[in-house]
Design a protein around this nucleic acid. Structure first.
Lengths: 108, 108
DNA sequence: TCATCATATCATTAAAGGATGATATGTTAG
DNA sequence: CTAACATATCATCCTTTAATGATATGATGA
């Protein structure tokens, strides 16, 4: 099954990691450096279980990495390339800010 | 309402344009240059109404632009910056291809 | 004006997706 | 060993999302 998945769908799947507000807020909280789960929970204002759930997926997708230090687990952005994508996202948003604000779809 | 939407949600909203397979295939079909709707329909293999619906949203969000030539409407990627984001997406995907393939979420 | 071409819009439906809250699991100090 | 800390997992539910197919709208040539 998965062997036959087209690159396009893989790519869309990748962008999904950025397209959900909770996930994006997690990634944003990690831009300045690694954080433990508890800190991500505080930074994002989401429930611990929700954050854990999303982190699990982001990690499995390869967008973040983790390391354990005793009871604590630290997460960080997986690569410079992911950071670069986030930076580009900022630039695009700057361009289309007014348009996207007025679009009625995806009213978060 | 919309005035109060946080930048994070705006950004997630922007990434949404890339995270849906149909939308992404539309954007991908435009990377080499502008196309009329009919051609996008062929390139993506989606129904005309579905393509139109997504194009409408992509346009309103500012990710694509359009011009009319008689009966035909041509769409193109809105800016170099959007192209750049697509390029970065390719690079990230290259890095995480094996991981994301194995992730069970978003089985397109 | 009307038929044809090209595209946009709309109502409906089925499926996907995300959050919650309880609970399970892993680590560690006393 | 046990309690406390930190995090992961799970079942459920509600909301959102995308596709379909019919139809509306716009442009044009005869």
């Amino acid at each position: 099954m998965l062997e036959q998945i087209a690159p396009l769908e893989l790519k869309a799947k990748m962008y999904r990691g950025f397209a959900d507000p909770t996930r994006l807020s997690i990634l944003e909280s990690l831009r300045d450096g690694e954080r433990m789960v508890g800190a991500i929970v505080e930074a994002t204002g989401q429930s611990q279980s929700n954050v854990s759930n999303h982190l699990s997926c982001l990690k499995e997708c390869g967008l973040v990495t983790s390391r354990r230090d005793g009871k604590k687990i630290f997460y960080s952005i997986a690569s410079h390339q992911v950071q670069s994508l986030l930076n580009d996202g900022d630039l695009v948003l700057r361009e289309i800010r007014d348009c996207i604000r007025s679009c009625a779809k995806y009213d978060y």
